[in-house]
């Protein structure tokens, strides 16, 4: 044992390699290789009955730009974008309150209340909205009882239901990064702005918002990426016209049996997500530089 250790001590490179090897086996063998295989499949062709024929072309990518699918990408994009914006507004309200308006014990209690839903099963949280949105669900019953409506509203299996489900699921991803940056904000700066005569809104837009842009960008990227690739929420809460790109991919693998095409769509989604991530990283860097 001692000898082995001695040997490694003299060869730091080997030691590093051995320590990193385990993780690398998983990350390369079960993440990088499958993704490369997926890429290869996206260039292949669907054989009759849905097996893969190794006949390489860009056909699947061309097919993926058919107007039919463009519409679904567009829908996914604007659903994800709206979700991100709604999360940003709601997230600011909460993060600002926790970071700058309360102190001491309340701070940690309110923060924990944000984190609890984040740790609770995603499926269960989505299911809760199914209970609420049913024709004989909680919301309809309450509205009928209050006399606001006389006929149950059709809420479940609609696109607004998908919005609510997505915002609900993604909100903690926005609140936490926003809180992290607002927490570091010096309240003296805000006081200074107000002392100099800025209105509350002006203070927010000219001081708070620029100083928290990094958290906003991080939160937005997280929310947008998860929402754009959503599968469970549109599947459970959405209706005939809420198909998103995640559902297209799943459908190609599980139902339509066109794995090469499904792979191509999956890769397009990945490229878009990576692009947005890089753009948001760059913008926060630029933002930080401007501040300096």
């Amino acid at each position: 044992m001692e000898k082995v250790l001695q040997w490694f001590r003299c060869r730091p490179k080997w030691r590093v390699t051995v320590l990193v090897a385990g993780s690398l086996v998983f990350l390369v063998g079960l993440m990088l290789l499958p993704l490369m295989y997926l890429f290869a499949v996206s260039l292949a062709e669907r054989a009759r009955y849905g097996t893969i024929r190794w006949h390489f072309s860009l056909q699947n990518y061309l097919q993926a730009f058919h107007p039919l699918y463009l519409e679904i990408y567009w829908r996914s994009f604007w659903i994800a974008l709206t979700t991100t914006m709604l999360c940003a507004v709601l997230g600011y309200v909460v993060a600002y309150t926790i970071a700058l308006r309360v102190s001491g014990g309340w701070k940690s209690v309110l923060l924990m209340l944000v984190v609890i839903p984040f740790w609770t099963s995603y499926l269960i949280r989505t299911y809760a909205w199914m209970l609420i949105f049913r024709a004989q669900g909680v919301l309809n019953n309450a509205l009928l009882w209050l006399g606001v409506i006389h006929q149950p509203l059709q809420l479940l299996y609609t696109t607004p239901a998908v919005f609510v489900g997505l915002v609900y699921a993604q909100l903690p991803f926005m609140i936490l990064p926003l809180y992290a940056v607002l927490q570091k904000l010096d309240p003296a700066l805000l006081e200074a702005a107000q002392d100099l005569g800025a209105s509350r809104w002006k203070t927010f837009f000219r001081v708070t918002l620029p100083l928290s842009s990094q958290g906003l960008a991080a939160g937005s990227a997280l929310v947008f990426i998860s929402a754009a690739g959503a599968f469970i929420t549109p599947d459970l809460l959405g209706g005939a016209r809420s198909m998103m790109v995640g559902n297209v991919i799943e459908d190609q693998f599980a139902v339509a049996r066109n794995q090469p095409f499904g792979s191509a769509v999956a890769f397009l989604l990945t490229f878009v997500v990576l692009g947005i991530l890089l753009a948001s990283l760059r913008s926060t860097q630029r933002g930080a530089r401007e501040l300096l």
Binding site: P34, L38, F231, I249, G262
Partner: peptide, 12 residues
């Protein structure tokens, strides 16, 4: 995106 990891793993 998780869906991409899922389909990559299943065909792999």
């Amino acid at each position: 995106p998780e869906i991409v990891i899922a389909v990559a793993l299943v065909i792999f």
